[in-house]
Each structure stands twice: as structure tokens, then as C-alpha cells.
Amino acid sequence: MKILVCITHVPDTTSKISFSGDALNKDGLQFIIGPYDDYALARAIELKEQHGGTVTVLNVGTAETDQIIRKALAIGADDAVRIDAEPTGSFFVAKQIAEYAKDKGFDLILMGRESIDFNGGLVHGMVGELLGLPVVTPVMRMDVDGGKAKMEKEIDGGKQQVEAELPLVAGCQEPIAEWKIPSMRGIMSARSKPLEVIPPVGVDTKVAFSAFEEPAPRKGCTFVDAGNEKELVDLLRNEAKVI
């Protein structure tokens, strides 16, 4: 089985986000594989262990992302591709992935349900539509049996079990697998695994991001003494007017 896992390069979830002008202030930020993508990668490696085959990781990004690509190789991917471009929007990224994947015969194209930087959640759907493949998202369990994937996905207010023919595209989320930590051996072998860097295809991005801002601070916390819950109810009714 040939599996492609698309990963994003995002600030660690504990990061404080700030901007210098119109750019993210990267000083002191640690970058990680997007947590949802990390679930997809972990499941891909488990599926490879069960069924054989290969796991290729793909990232659309500049050279700064090599560090997380090496981490994905250390976790157990066999090879990697970096499409050498700033990921400037969902459509741009989807188009790069689709162009790369169209003639490679992947059985599964997995990625996280959304990136945690721009929170778009569109790329898997777009890739599926561009390649004419079925898309299932957000997937919480996935098993492969013959030419089919059996999956459980989240729906509004519940979950649904679905079966789909391979090849397919899936957006993944927990609890599809547990995040994997690279082993020492994995880290050593990752250094010699192939990482191919290829140029992007020209795409009209269709969107432009600008004018970043941080949320307004809250007005501060009004404390109510324990035992005085009636006062809280009164504040919620008459001051906040939310109940």
C-alpha cells in the first residue's frame, strides 16, 4: 500500500503568537508537525506495519520546514517531498499536493482535519475534488481491508461509520492513533532517508492574508465568593445578560 501523508509546519501549541508588522514573530517559537497531521502520520505508519507498503510525507514549505520533515522520517516515514514554496492559502497548497500526487498511484492520501495556524480545514476536500477521489473527514478510526477502508468519522453531534474504496483522501483527527515519538534508531536512519525538493506549480492563490492582530484582552475576572452563588447568577442575568 502506498500512503502519502501531508504535514504542516506550525508553532507548538503552547506558543504565544505575536506579529512584527505583517509577519509572524518567529523569535523563540518552536515549530512542530501539525497535531492533526501527526495523528495521520501515526496511523499511516501503523497501516504500513499491518499491510506493508510505503509512507511518503509531503510538505509545502520553504527550507525552514526540513526539521519537521526529518522528524516525520524519524517517526517512520520512508521518504519525503518538500514542495519549495511559501504555503499561501488552502487552494495553493491543495493544488501543489494534487499535482504531485496525480500520477503516483497513492492508495491513501492522509492529512490532518485542519492546520492549526490558519485553521482552514479545506485542503483535503480540495485535493479530493481536484483528483476526483472520494474524501472522508474528519476521520477518527481507519482500518484497511482489501481494497476498502473502514472508517469512523465525526458528524455534527455524533459519529458515522463509513466504508470507501481506495484510493481516497482523508482528513484525520484523534483518536485515529496515538502520536509517535521518534526512537534513537529512527533519528539516525532519518538522516539518510531521501528528501526530494521540487519546485511548485504556478497557481492563482485566490486569497491574500494581511493585517494580523491579537485578540483584545478580556476586561479581567470578577470574583464571587464561594457560598455566594446567587450573586453569580445575578451577574450573569443582569450584567453579562447571558442567561
Binding site: F19, D117, F118, N119, T205, V207, E213, P215
Partner: peptide, 17 residues
């Protein structure tokens, strides 16, 4: 306008299409 970085910031997006 949309929230980014999971609620830690906002950005403005121009839709060119």
C-alpha cells in the same frame, strides 16, 4: 476577518476570485 492560530490571533483575508 477570521480567527487564526486557533483563536490566538485574527487576520484579514482578501478574496480575489
Amino acid at each position: 476577518k477570521k480567527g487564526i492560530y486557533s483563536g490566538k490571533a485574527f487576520t484579514k483575508v482578501t478574496l480575489n476570485g
